[in-house]
Design a protein around this nucleic acid. Structure first.
Lengths: 208, 208
DNA sequence: AATTCAGCGATTGTTCAACAATCCTTCGAT
DNA sequence: ATCGAAGGATTGTTGAACAATCGCTGAATT
């Protein structure tokens, strides 16, 4: 039932997440229209959607390019994450919402046991998504999922280091435990420290 | 140099903010295309833009309608505002950013002296925009401006009461003073209380 | 009288073809 | 080597067309 434009956007989102389309790549309307067997106009609508999610940047009269994050953007993204995630965890959340956080932690453990780096990454994203979901706000959830989608864009460079996420497992476990014990201030503190460290690493990998 | 689609979106945004287009109104592609002298396809792109800002809702195969916020949405919007604004004010901000907050307060005073209800409303929005700007994050700023745009949609009912904003002046003054005195916790507390009260009022006006 | 349903009109979703405007590049002139 | 002008490619925008879908009207049925 989803419109064609939506499916085109989905397909592109997928290719962006998979790293098939790397930051900076130019997306030509006509070629994508041909490749996916749709009209140029439809591709255009899909582009508008992706642009509103910052996955893609429009250069007027020049075309759309896969968004590439500069150091400033990295800090900015983490500022958003600190704001939203820390606030969400400070508010606690329903038992089901907390259970979702726990589930994400376990998902990460399983992925680690299976040596599944890809799975580890998505588990980590689920974890942080679940944390925001604690606030129970539809809008915060969509904001967060957009931010996470944006981050996937430049995670590909980061994931070259196979052990990139491995250290996060313990952090997530600790944060989750504090949350479950209703030690919200502690949980918030741990989360904040985690985000700061994470930003540092990203800056390293991405910095010049 | 802005594209035609952008100008169409701007025009519609204006009409939405002005209350010319009220929530629930149906927007027909062809009539808008004619009215503004552009192609239907271009209107379509503008719709996509507005939909991504939640100013407008797409009902597949039925058309787009001016977004109308239900009670749940009101709470949701205020949840976002509490999260972002309180976090921003807790972080303090550069002297210039604080000065911008002060400027918005004075702007409100002037509007009040001139009995300019409209001006009072925009001054209030500037105030809260300036608070978020304290965080110095581009993304948080755009998120906030979208939220404010969303709120303008249902402010029209609220503004029927001419004294709706009048009470806010003192609040803003106090919050600003606390901020200038670097009493960030106090400022955050005042802001939070203000937002809670504001949500209550909105719920009253809008609630059934 | 109320209900169901077929058909109709209007609107959206999508495609296609065209053209102006703009940008990038290449090539030639200086 | 620098500069600028022509050329090609791509985007921005339009207009027209058509299928799909929705909501409604009005007729047939119970």
């Amino acid at each position: 039932m989803p419109s064609v434009a939506d499916r085109v956007a989905d397909e592109l989102r997928l290719q962006l997440a998979e790293g098939i389309l790397l930051p900076g790549t130019r997306l030509t309307e006509s070629t994508i229209a041909e490749d996916l067997g749709v009209s140029r106009n439809t591709v255009r609508e899909a582009f508008a959607e992706l642009a509103s999610e910052r996955l893609v940047v429009r250069h007027p009269n020049r075309g759309v390019f896969v968004a590439s994050l500069e150091p400033g953007d990295i800090h900015d993204v983490y500022t958003v994450r600190r704001t939203i995630e820390v606030s969400a965890i400070r508010g606690g959340g329903s038992p089901e919402a907390v259970a979702a956080v726990r589930a994400a932690v376990e998902e990460g453990k399983l992925a680690a046991a299976a040596n599944d780096d890809e799975g580890l990454g998505t588990a980590n994203q689920h974890f942080h998504g679940a944390i925001v979901a604690l606030a129970g706000s539809r809008r915060l959830n969509t904001i967060m999922s957009q931010v996470l989608a944006e981050m996937r864009l430049f995670f590909h460079k980061a994931t070259l280091d196979a052990h990139f996420y491995s250290g996060y497992l313990k952090d997530n476990e600790e944060i989750c435990e504090a949350l479950e014990a209703d030690e919200l201030d502690l949980a918030a503190e741990l989360l904040l420290a985690y985000l700061d460290r994470s930003e540092e690493r990203q800056a390293e990998v991405h910095g010049e």
